[in-house]
Design a protein around this nucleic acid. Structure first.
Lengths: 228, 228
DNA sequence: AATTTGTATTGATTTATATCAATCATTAGG
DNA sequence: CCTAATGATTGATATAAATCAATACAAATT
């Protein structure tokens, strides 16, 4: 079997793809586009029609929603292996969030038609999609608790742990997120974020030098995050 | 066709049911239990295994998650016609929220087995379930914006409009939600909620007498809710 | 009717956090 | 190399909202 498009070594971490048969996989291969984005570029714009399912082959992006007074909420950071289905699918066919590149990115765009067809013809694929959605819902529940019951320090500790554990997989990481971005992940103002980071630094919990962050005491951060 | 269980006059508002064929419908009929709950009773307890899909035939309930320090967040109020699939389904099989009765309730509990089987055998049903989930996701996005960018007055105005428009379908309604419940819907303390309600009352936007609430100026409330 | 219990309300106070304004640092252009 | 522009930092101040404490009210129980 030839593999012109390189799908066989696809690094997207989604069990659903394994359920596809050869025909379904071919439909994906034929519909897809490989696109490279530069840092800062918008990949999905909230309010536009959702035409593609985005697979991230390489790089980082932020997924965010527009809030009040030109403020944004960053829902999550996307990385290699992630796979984004817009919640507009099967509803209003609009994108309900924006995605923009935090680094140079390699992406693979799959048409919604190919996706929909796979969903309709392959129940195992459909089940994996529902599973993914259920995970997203519980994540949003946690986000709600974070934002409504924790104070700044707890939310920011949570964000640092999230970046370390879920995104950069290291206690010492360099991030391309701006201070405003980290603030938007934590639902605090940029100034407050900076003050809390300084505080964490001065008490030795983290080391921070520009965009290089090292967690010295994960236990302490976890505790701050847990109690709020 | 006999209808011992009364499913033919089912009032649950979910397009997915219409996609079921006679066999699938019968599987639902056979698996279901009709259960009456009294005000205050717990129907679903967060952390327990999810064994049932809940259909609400009559009455009101609150769906809430446990936050920090014994505080709760009420995600939504459930009413006649609503239909609840736990996000634990296909993931960890646990309930990620609690549901408790706000009034006497008639419910219809469908086993997850019957539900799963319908999902797996009927792709139209599956599609409706995904659609429902996508709606839930976008609702949670709005909730996040509400909670992180609006101040108390905006969040409370939003809650009053929600109760009026989405739950009680009237500008003048009696609610069995306590002040604490309304506060938990709005992510404010009970005392703050009471003060803001008093404020709205004194400025003539609403009339309030115990649990009877009347909206005098929906436009003003909408404006307060919109600008935050 | 008296007592308890839970909920609702009000007022005083404290705390958390945003906002505003200024300065500093770093990068990008001319 | 200098200057503009953007992002990061710091400090002072204002404000929103929680908490604490006391009281009022209503319902349930004896």
């Amino acid at each position: 079997m030839s593999d012109i498009t390189g799908c066989s070594k696809c690094n997207i971490k989604f069990n659903g793809f394994e359920t596809l048969n050869e025909d379904e996989l071919n439909a994906f291969k034929e519909s897809h586009c490989k696109v490279v984005y530069q840092k800062g570029e918008t990949i999905i714009k909230e309010g536009t029609r959702c035409n593609n399912i985005i697979c991230i082959k390489k790089g980082y992006a932020k997924l965010y929603i527009k809030g009040l007074e030109n403020k944004n909420i960053i829902i999550k950071v996307l990385k290699e292996g992630d796979f984004i289905v817009s919640p507009g699918l099967f509803t209003d066919n609009l994108n309900h969030f924006s995605v923009s590149a935090l680094t140079e990115m390699d992406t693979c765009l799959i048409s919604v038609e190919a996706f929909t067809s796979a969903f309709r013809n392959n129940i195992c694929f459909a089940e994996q999609i529902l599973k993914l959605n259920h995970q997203i819902t519980t994540d949003l529940y946690h986000q709600l608790i974070n934002f409504s019951h924790k104070k700044m320090t707890g939310r920011i500790a949570n964000t640092i742990l999230y970046l370390s554990e879920k995104i950069y997989h290291s206690r010492n990481f360099y991030t391309t997120l701006s201070r405003q971005d980290i603030a938007d992940l934590s639902s605090v103002s940029k100034e407050s974020l900076i003050r809390v980071l300084k505080d964490f630094k001065e008490s030795g919990i983290i080391s921070i030098n520009g965009n290089q962050i090292e967690i010295n005491s994960p236990k302490t951060l976890e505790n701050i995050s847990r109690v709020g």
